[in-house]
Simulated assay, not measured.
Amino acid sequence: MTVSLRGTREVRANCQIFRLTGLLDAFSEPTFRKVMGNYVTQGPSNLILDLSGIDFVDSSGLGALVQLVKKAKDSQGSLQLIANPRVMQTVKLVRLEKFLAIQPSVDEAIANL
């Protein structure tokens, strides 16, 4: 995606799984938002984002995640996240833990579809 944010994409019958590493911040957010928006449009619209390899997320990154949840829902899909302690700390700081569907693992996210 960008130098500071990298990832892989796996497409399954009913979902797309993204494993991201690096920084989800103001620098990477515009590209992240554009690329992920295109993937939602291509489908399937159920997304699983594994953020366990993310080193840092800022308010721009959180805003992009919120927009991605809305876009997935508009496409009759969902967004589930797997977060590490750093990401969870930021999510809890802005009280988004109830809005963002956070799962303990990719397997549990898949089972939750």
Rank of each mutant, 00 (worst) to 15 (best):
L65R: 00
N84D: 08
L51A: 01
T21H: 11
I48P: 07
Q16C: 09
G53P: 00
S60F: 10
S28H: 05
L79D: 11
A72Y: 01
A101N: 14
P104T: 06
T2D: 01
R12P: 01
S60R: 01
E97M: 05
L81K: 15
L23T: 08
N14M: 15
A83I: 04
I54C: 07
R19A: 09
T8M: 00
K71H: 12
P30H: 01
K92Y: 07
P30W: 00
D50C: 02
G7P: 00
I17Q: 04
Q89L: 06
A26S: 14
K71G: 03
V11Q: 07
G43N: 06
R6Y: 01
M88I: 09
G53N: 04
L100I: 11
T8G: 06
K73N: 15
L62G: 04
E10Q: 15
T8A: 01
A83S: 15
T31A: 13
K71A: 15
V35R: 11
Q80R: 15
I54V: 15
D25Y: 10
Q103K: 13
S105F: 11
K98E: 10
L81Y: 14
N14L: 14
N46I: 03
S60H: 03
E29G: 07
A13F: 02
D25N: 15
F56W: 06
D55R: 01
L68R: 13
F27E: 13
K34V: 11
F99K: 05
S28T: 11
Q80C: 11
L68V: 05
T90R: 14
K73Y: 12
S60E: 05
G77T: 08
